[in-house]
Design a protein around this nucleic acid. Structure first.
Lengths: 87, 87
DNA sequence: CTTTATTTGTCCGTATGTATG
DNA sequence: ACATACATACGGACAAATAAA
């Protein structure tokens, strides 16, 4: 008896490989999420969200986004955000 | 004679401690105002108002608000504003 | 119903300073 | 010297939600 429930808050933090730039590793993760369907078409990918999730600065996030834009994986509209592109 | 009245407009500007980020100092002020009751529950705290009062850019104000939101001190709704939360 | 104003959300570009590899 | 990365800060633009006229 005296059963109880422990609410454990696990903050999932990305493990970075110190031998490669963070922005390339984050880009890899996003690519994988798009490929797997975890991020469906038109899903919003916002800068602040990425900053918080990966615990990096804006400049780093923007590097990720620039790369994904050039690959055509995301489409960005000012005032709206960045979204997973249709393939 | 020839008495007259001078209307002197004194613009009260916050004095910032250059050794600490502006946004933390502004957040301190807001927290204090909420605690003291100067900002009662449901009082609107708008971004433009804070910009003008403290003479800072919007991004700085938004950082303050993000912090206060995470602390549960204010509740924000797009199109309406940020309000002092019920405790 | 339409228009306007207010307010927040998001993105863009830039800049300074610090620190590390 | 250079690239990466963080933190702070400014100012601007456009989009979307809400409320008021």
């Amino acid at each position: 008896m005296f059963g109880y429930t422990v609410m454990r808050t696990v903050t999932q933090v990305m493990e970075f490989d110190p031998t490669r730039p963070k922005w390339t590793q984050i880009a890899d993760v996003i690519r994988q999420r798009i490929a797997s369907g975890e991020y469906p078409v038109n899903r919003l990918i916002s800068e602040t969200q990425l900053e918080q999730e990966f615990g990096v600065a804006r400049g780093t996030v923007r590097k990720v986004k620039t790369a994904l834009q050039e690959e055509g994986l995301i489409v960005t509209t000012r005032g709206m955000g960045s979204f997973v592109a249709k393939r």
